[in-house]
Write a protein that binds this DNA or RNA. Structure first.
Length: 242
DNA sequence: CCATTAATGTGCA
DNA sequence: TGCACATTAATGG
């Protein structure tokens, strides 16, 4: 059985799925209905590629549940993780940046629920739906800003600071409050963290172990909780963990 | 259970 | 850091 790749035209989706999300929140019920009627839904397992870098951008997507990891492959075959996208955001919106191929690969970082539309309706959406364009460009701008920040970090900060910053971003964007701290809401390995920060999994492993001793983080396999965000901020600013 | 694989941890150049 | 190897945790018979 493979429930992950079947694109279903489901028993009508409910308007409330979209009506509170920024790109659609200014629309009336009838407009949301039109949009939903054009959409396909897919339920995806963790680790499944939604689309690949360089492929023709045939569809754009809205993540309804779960997390998406955006990654690129270097010429030497190394993976680099550009960013993570939380539920409620559009992705694969190549048209918004003037492209007709996807600029990066998107893989589910957890189980995910995804809506998609054929790219040919993009211009219609922009033209007809109040707020859609401004909200999507806001999203594009935010991601651009984040990537810029990362470039500066890469060029100016020590590994320890970069990993601390990556962790802080993750808990800010995808953190879930648990007792004792804030946990990254999807499975994440040391390897993943190293691919976000330009290091090796070994270095990340050592850093996390050290921070765990200091009481800054707690981790179990594929799960990381930041237990002392304040001290992690200090580390990200170049202070010694203690 | 046991075998296999994935993830994590450690010692050393 | 980078790498080889040890250890531990998940997964599939």
């Amino acid at each position: 059985m493979n429930p992950t790749s079947a694109r279903k035209t489901l028993p009508r989706l409910d308007e409330s799925l979209l009506s509170h999300l920024p790109p659609f929140s200014r629309l009336d019920r009838r407009q949301v209905r039109e949009i939903l009627d054009l959409a396909s839904v897919r339920r995806l397992d963790e680790g499944v590629a939604v689309f690949e870098e360089g492929a023709p951008a045939e569809r754009f997507y809205m993540l309804l549940d779960g997390y998406i990891r955006v990654m690129r492959i270097t010429p030497t075959g190394e993976q680099v993780i550009a960013l993570h996208i939380p539920a409620g955001q559009l992705f694969g919106i190549a048209k918004a940046i003037g492209r007709d191929t996807y600029p990066a690969t998107s893989v589910t970082a957890s189980e995910a629920l995804v809506l998609s539309w054929p790219m040919r309706v993009w211009d219609d959406f922009v033209a007809r739906y109040e707020g859609f364009a401004t909200e999507t460009y806001k999203t594009v701008g935010q991601r651009l800003g984040e990537m810029n920040t990362r470039i500066v970090e890469m060029a100016t900060q020590q590994v320890e600071q970069r990993v601390a910053n990556a962790l802080l971003r993750l808990i800010n964007q995808t953190g879930r409050k648990v007792e004792g701290g804030i946990e990254i809401d999807f499975p994440i390995t040391r390897q993943d963290l190293s691919e976000m920060t330009g290091t090796t999994l070994h270095t990340v492993s050592r850093l996390l172990s050290g921070w765990e001793k200091d009481g800054i983080v707690a981790s179990r396999r594929k799960r990381i909780t930041v237990t002392d965000p304040h001290r992690l901020v200090l580390v990200s600013q170049g202070h010694a963990p203690r």
